[in-house]
Amino acid sequence: MAPLGIRTFLEYIRFMSELTRQHFLRLIAAGGASFLGLNSLASAQQSLKGPPVPWGRLKFIGENGDQEDWHVHPHGDLNLIDSIRDETTVNLDKKWNVADVADLNSMAQYPFLFMHGELAPVLDETAQKNLREYLLRGGFLFAEDCVNGYNHHGSNRKNDYFFRSVVEQLPNILPGSKIEKLPMDHPLFHCFYHFDEWPHMQGTEWGPHGLIHDGRVVALLSPSDLHCGWANGDRWFGPGKQKISMEMGANIYLYAMTQAA
C-alpha cells in the first residue's frame, strides 16, 4: 500500500480541480495549519515514547449465558489505541489482549482492563473474587455500557442494563468501596485534555461514576457508550463525536496510569 502521503497527493489533485472558494477557505482553516503542526508534533511525540504498555479487554458471561456480548466492536479499542499512540506520548502496544474474569492470572497481566457490554454481566463467586483481588492489587477497571451493541434490547438508545448492573454489583464485590458520581473538576477530566462536560454518546445520562476505595478511584463506570464513539462516532452520533470520545478515552487511560496513591 502506497504511503499515506502519496495517496493524499493524488486525491488532492482531483479534489482541487473542483474546489470552490468556500471549500478552499475551509481547507486552510482545517488542514493547512494543522499539516505543519502535525509533523512537528508527531516527531516530538515519538522521541518521548516510553516502553510499551498493554491494553486488555475483559471477557465475561452476560445474561442468559451470553458469550459474545463482551467482545462487541473490538475495532473500537484498536481505534482508541491508534489515537492514544498518535496524540499522546503513551506507547500503548497495538494488540487486542483478552483477559478472562474467570482467570485471575490473565487479568493480572494488565494494569488497565476495559469491560464493555450491553447485557448485565453475570459474575459468579470466582469472578467476583478475581475482580476484588485485581482491584486490590492495583489494577484499574473501566466498565462501560454498550447500550445496543448487538441489539439485544432492540435499538433503544437509552438502554442502561450493563451500567446499572455493575453499579449495583461492584461495591458489594469490593467491601469498603463506594460509588460516587465524578464532578467535572475531577482530575480525570483535566489530566491531558480538558473537558467542561462529559461526552455522552448514547444511553441514559447517569454521568460518569467512580468506584472509590481507600481514597483511590479503582474503577470508572460509564453509561455513555464512549466505545461506540471510538468505533464509528462520526457516523453514528454526528461530526466530531469520534474525536471527543477518543480524547476522553485517552484521559481515562492516562488518569489510571498516573493517579497518585
Binding site: 498493554p54 471477557k59 459474545e68 467482545h71 462487541v72 466492536h73 473490538p74 475495532h75 487486542w96 489482549n97 483478552v98 483477559a99 490473565s106 497481566q109 494488565y110 451493541g149 448487538y150 468505533a231 464509528n232 457516523r235 453514528w236
Partner: peptide, 21 residues
C-alpha cells in the same frame, strides 16, 4: 459500517487464542 457480529466474533476468538504477554 462499523458493526458486524460475525467478523467481530472471529476476530475476538483469534485474539483470545493468541492473547497474553
Amino acid at each position: 459500517g462499523g458493526s458486524n457480529r460475525t467478523p467481530e466474533g472471529e476476530f475476538a476468538s483469534g485474539a483470545e487464542a493468541t492473547s497474553g504477554l
